[in-house]
Amino acid sequence: MATVMMLKEILTTKQLEKRLGLPGGNRERMYFDFLQNPEMDDEKWLALVEYFVGRGKGLTPSGDDLLMGYLFILKLYQHKFYQVLELQLHKMNRFTTDVSWNYLSALLLGYVSSPFIELRNGLEEELPYNELNQLVKAILAIGHTSGSDSCYGLFLGVTALMGNK
């Protein structure tokens, strides 16, 4: 768990909320709070997924990227709510772009792109701070806001793993 704490520290230094491709309103804040402190409420999960999937600009909308980062962390550490999120995501393929759905469905099957594989390996190997930071920077470099959105999802997921804000 020390590496997860280090990842959270690294992500915190990136000021991700200022770099998101999503608005920063009350509704988003409510969902971000829920993702940090998830609970078993199928209706809330469905509302959250319906809100984020397809939301934002680009071939991979920001909401999708955020959920990708979040689900990646939950799956990696087998958090108790990753299957609830997966179940809701399976219903959303017609609500986003084909490119984004391909990424999401690949993640649902356990596949991710190389920057995420490298991050997973770095977390498993318990790399030192500076090397883990480089892996985060590689994800941040993806697309216009995709990297920032994905990293914010990672941050929310790590916070959920740690069980606090």
Rank of each mutant, 00 (worst) to 15 (best):
F155R: 11
D42T: 15
Y111K: 13
E126M: 14
C151H: 03
M40H: 09
L46C: 11
W45S: 02
L71M: 12
D65V: 05
L74R: 00
F155W: 12
K137M: 12
V112C: 09
L104A: 02
G157F: 01
I10W: 08
S113K: 09
G24W: 05
P38W: 04
T159F: 02
L107P: 00
F81N: 08
G56V: 08
L119Y: 08
M162W: 06
G58K: 01
E17A: 15
L59I: 03
G25E: 06
E43Q: 15
D42I: 14
I117G: 02
H144L: 14
D64C: 08
E9I: 07
L104R: 00
Q36H: 09
G153T: 01
T145Q: 03
N130F: 15
F116Q: 05
G21L: 10
A47Y: 05
G63R: 00
R19P: 02
G153E: 05
L71P: 01
F52K: 00
G21N: 02
T60E: 07
V49I: 14
Q78A: 13
L7K: 02
V136D: 01
T145V: 09
A106D: 10
M6C: 11
T12L: 11
D64Y: 03
V136W: 04
L71K: 03
D41E: 14
L71Y: 05
S113G: 14
E125T: 10
K75W: 02
Q88E: 10
V84K: 00
H79F: 10
E125P: 04
E39H: 09
C151A: 14
S146C: 15
P61S: 06
R120V: 04
M6D: 09
L59F: 06
L59Y: 07
N26V: 12
G122E: 09
Q88I: 00
N164K: 13
K8E: 15
Y31D: 03
Q36D: 08
L127W: 06
G157R: 08
C151F: 07
K75S: 09
V4H: 02
K18T: 05
L46N: 11
Y70D: 01
S148F: 05
L85F: 01
F32V: 05
L7M: 10
M68A: 13
L7F: 07
H79E: 06
T159Q: 13
L89A: 06
L123E: 04
E17F: 13
A138G: 11
L156C: 13
G56T: 03
D33M: 10
T60W: 01
P115F: 13
L7E: 03
M68V: 15
S114H: 10
